[in-house]
Amino acid sequence: MVRRLTRLVGVLTAILAAIAVTPSRAADKVAPTTVRIGVIGILAEAGLYVAAERGYFTEEGLNVEFLKDMVGADAFPGLATGQIDGVGGSFGPELANAVLRGVRIKLVAGLNSYIPGWDAGALTIRKELIDNGRVKDWKDLKGLKIGITAPLPNMTDFFASRYLAQGGLTFSDVEFVTVPFPNMISALKTGGIDAAHTSEPMTTLAVDNKIAVKWRPVSTYAPPGLTVAILQFGPSLLDKAPDVGERFVTAYLRGARYYDEALARPDGKAEIAPILMKYTPLKDRSIYDRISFSYAPPDGEISVTGLEAMSTYYATHNGPNAGDVSKLVDDRFQKAALKRLGLYKKSGG
């Protein structure tokens, strides 16, 4: 909560910072060998952290700094002025609005996709409602209090539109309650909400505490292969130093591949868990044995059809209309990286 508050204060300071460094002066900046990436600090960013810990960025001659919580709207002024080079994040209405306003941001590589078997997201339902048989099927979601993290339209209500549709339901069949992610578990516990789309490790924590049930994996209601976390670049890497951008994506993809492969090995979790413990707030080693890990697409693919589904949803729910979403994607960096690394083939070990 305090974090959110300091970020609010950050809004104005970020804007003021934009005055201090005008775009013309940013142009004089030397191409960065230091790359500053805004992140949330979540499990879905695993590929970035593995790349950093494995030294792949260093091998590319890059010094990567992760700026925690410098994502979304807070990051736009920094991106525009070159104080931040890129961010990891989802495709939300703020991104569509920024692009519509002419902020130069491109989606360059996927960080995390929802595919079957890697269900780092789930529809979580209060345990009581499962135990007493209140919720058995999709259509039983009718009348529930649904937790969302931001006012409509945004990502969690996009997911709500998807899982409600599974039972032939619409928004008018449920009640929405806005709850920030950190408060989701306590809201489920107190009955403030009945159901919500949750990510790891929250799902596992809620299940561990016998508060809720991981009812349906996200792959049952999200668009197939939806890229939920995406690496995004601003003008400093897009225009001024694309070569740095290419090296960054190359290093990242090596990290993503290493991460996916490690988790396929029986002892892999033991190697990955300490890295994630270092970069995310989840410090309890034992929980890593129970969570569903996020899938990092090894070629950095971005699902345009998934983006389209989200964009259409925003546009039809009083949100921004981003138009042709394929124009939001810039695959130069991904292509250059793949040229060096080759397409990923599942290695047998």
Partner: peptide, 25 residues
């Protein structure tokens, strides 16, 4: 304004905070 941006569904602070969150400048 601070309190509304932290935990509220209405108010000037909420307005400032949420519109910034979705970049409605």
């Amino acid at each position: 304004v601070s309190a509304e941006s932290l935990a509220a569904k209405s108010g000037i602070g909420y307005l400032i905070w949420t519109t910034w969150q979705v970049f409605e400048v």
